[in-house]
Computed example of a mutant assay.
Amino acid sequence: MEFSLCMIVKDEEKVLSKCLESVKDFIDEIILVDTGSSDLTKEIGAKFGATIYDFKWCDDFSKARNYAFSKSTKDYILWLDADGYITQDNIDKLVNLKKTLNPNVDVVSMHYSLVRDENENTIYSLRRNRLVKRERNFKWVGRIHEYIDVYGRSLHSDIYIYIITSIKHIRKETLIYLD
């Protein structure tokens, strides 16, 4: 079983290396769709062996993501944003998932760690569908705040994807919880 990484990028030189470094050992193909970078984004992607495509930005994230997915050639597609990364313990889980994933599974959801405390413990996360079977030809929907429209067999994994945030840490007391 092989995994593609599909990303849309623009001027991501500050964060892209951390993202690609975190996936390079288990991803079989990296697809970067560049929407108009004027920095070193493409050169950084090339250092990691990415196949890079240009896409004229049209104010529609779904169109760009669908284009990226159309370039994938592997069994499953993992998607990340350039400011996302995976820690070693979660890389280990992904490597194991790659070895053991039932081919009848169409989509795998993962935790998306959005806010962490001063010890890097996740204090706010949500689930996102992160790994999808390519042959199902799932489509992204929504010009902004897009989502991938999935169906079929799903697996809810315990894998975490992290985002590089501008907030270094946040105290738990500052969060408001709604019931």
Rank of each mutant, 00 (worst) to 15 (best):
D59T: 02
I164Q: 12
D83N: 04
I164G: 01
E173H: 12
L20P: 05
F26A: 03
T87M: 13
S17M: 05
S109E: 15
D106P: 04
T174S: 13
L131F: 05
G152A: 07
I159L: 09
I86V: 15
K98E: 06
V132E: 01
E43I: 11
V132I: 14
M110G: 01
D179Y: 13
Y124W: 15
D59W: 03
N96S: 15
D149C: 06
E21P: 02
L20I: 10
L114H: 09
N90K: 09
I44F: 04
K24E: 12
M1H: 12
F138V: 04
L126V: 14
F3V: 04
F55A: 11
L16N: 02
V105M: 11
V115G: 06
D106R: 03
F55W: 12
T87A: 13
F55T: 10
T165S: 14
S17F: 05
S113T: 06
K47R: 14
W57K: 04
T35I: 13
I161D: 03
D75K: 06
T51A: 10
Y160E: 15
L78F: 04
S125G: 05
D60R: 05
L5H: 03
V33H: 03
A46H: 07
K24S: 13
T73D: 08
R127N: 12
L97N: 10
A68G: 00
K99T: 12
Y76L: 01
D28V: 06
T51F: 10
